[in-house]
């Protein structure tokens, strides 16, 4: 299946659309039904993180998602254009330090727990999150 690309403005309302598109393409690509919830959540987390980053740094710029069938794997790349020096990694759980905004760092932890394979590429020009799942033909 050819690559599908989607760009959307950095609005929370569009994250649901991105989730639905990703899930639909995953199903069509052959991702197992039992993994579709994981695809939906992981793509949603990546897009939510991108939307939040754009709202802070560049609200007018779009966020891009690429979905592709890459030799037996369904691969999703979510790219933002917000400068990022580093991505918050998993941290020890301490309720005192948890806040609504801190939880955005949990997004990456959730993705890492869900996707079969995840790579995060932060840079001053933006962050790419690439994740993939098996998609038997």
């Amino acid at each position: 299946m050819a690559t599908v690309e989607l760009t959307f403005s950095a609005l929370p309302a569009h994250v649901r659309t991105a989730r639905l598109v990703a899930t639909a393409i995953a199903r069509r690509t052959g991702v197992e039904e039992s993994l579709l919830d994981e695809v939906r959540l992981a793509v949603g987390e990546a897009c939510s993180r991108a939307v939040e980053a754009h709202r802070v740094h560049c609200p007018g710029e779009p966020i891009r998602i690429e979905l592709r069938d890459d030799s037996g794997r369904f691969e999703v790349t979510v790219s933002d254009q917000a400068p990022s020096d580093e991505i918050q990694q998993e941290q020890p759980l301490d309720l005192g330090m948890l806040s609504d905004s801190f939880m955005s760092g949990f997004g990456i932890a959730v993705i890492a727990g869900l996707a079969d394979d995840v790579e995060v590429f932060p840079s001053p020009k933006g962050t790419n999150i690439r994740m993939s799942w098996p998609a038997p033909q």
Binding site: R19, R40, L41, G44, L98, M103, F106, G107, V110
Partner: peptide, 8 residues
């Protein structure tokens, strides 16, 4: 559906 924003 629940994501990390909801957890927050």
């Amino acid at each position: 559906f629940l994501d990390s924003t909801g957890l927050g």
